[in-house]
Simulated scan of single mutants.
Amino acid sequence: MKNQVNNIYNQAERFAEITKTAIITGNIIRAKKCLALAERLFATGSNETKIAISNVYVFSVSSFMELRHCNILNLFPKTLKAEYIRQINATGV
């Protein structure tokens, strides 16, 4: 089980890297598709999947977008946007 959980986190990080590459290359359509898939995984996945999407994917992609001064709120789907806002409020930023 521990190996499986680590694998979920590794997959979420790799998925975040794919999304960030799409943003860097200007492929916004692909980036939106990735974000939509992450949204679906967050909404329908297991508890481990939801935690991985929240703690790894959303954190990684949102941090990257903030550093590059991208407009996060227009790109993120509704549920991921709410998760992003929850993370900001929880960290006191």
Rank of each mutant, 00 (worst) to 15 (best):
A36M: 09
E66F: 11
N74K: 15
S63G: 14
N6V: 00
A36G: 05
E17V: 05
K50G: 11
A22C: 04
T25Q: 10
L80I: 00
F64Q: 03
I88R: 11
A31E: 04
E48K: 08
N55W: 06
N71Q: 11
I51T: 13
N10A: 01
T44C: 14
G45H: 09
L73E: 15
T19A: 08
C70E: 15
R40Q: 06
N89D: 10
F59R: 08
A90Y: 08
T19N: 04
N6Q: 03
A38M: 06
N27H: 01
N89M: 13
K50D: 06
R14V: 07
S60W: 05
K33F: 06
V61Q: 01
E17A: 10
M65G: 14
S46C: 14
G45Q: 09
E48L: 09
V5D: 04
M65T: 14
T49R: 10
S63M: 12
N47F: 15
N6F: 01
N3S: 09
R86I: 07
A82P: 00
I29F: 02
K2Q: 07
P77E: 09
A52N: 03
N10L: 00
N27R: 01
I8M: 07
C70R: 15
I28L: 12
N74A: 13
K78E: 11
R68V: 12
Y57D: 00
A82L: 13
L67D: 15
R68F: 12
S62A: 15
G45R: 07
S63K: 14
S46Y: 09
K2A: 03
L67H: 14
L75C: 08
I53E: 06
Q87V: 05
E66R: 14
S54C: 11
V61D: 05
R68P: 06
A52H: 06
L37D: 00
V58E: 00
N89V: 14
N27S: 04
V56H: 00
N89R: 15
I85P: 04
Y57E: 06
T49K: 11
F64L: 02
E66C: 13
F42L: 14
I53T: 10
N27I: 01
I8V: 11
T21G: 05
T19V: 09
K32L: 06
S60M: 05
E83I: 12
I72Y: 03
A43P: 04
T44F: 12
T21H: 07
A36T: 10
Q87R: 13
Y84T: 03
T25N: 09
K32E: 10
I28P: 07
Q87K: 13
H69R: 13
N6E: 06
N74P: 12
K32F: 02
Q87M: 12
I53C: 08
A12E: 00
L37Q: 07
I18D: 11
F64E: 05
C34Y: 00
F15R: 00
T25F: 06
K20D: 01
A31K: 04
Q4K: 07
N55V: 11
Y9K: 04
S60Y: 08
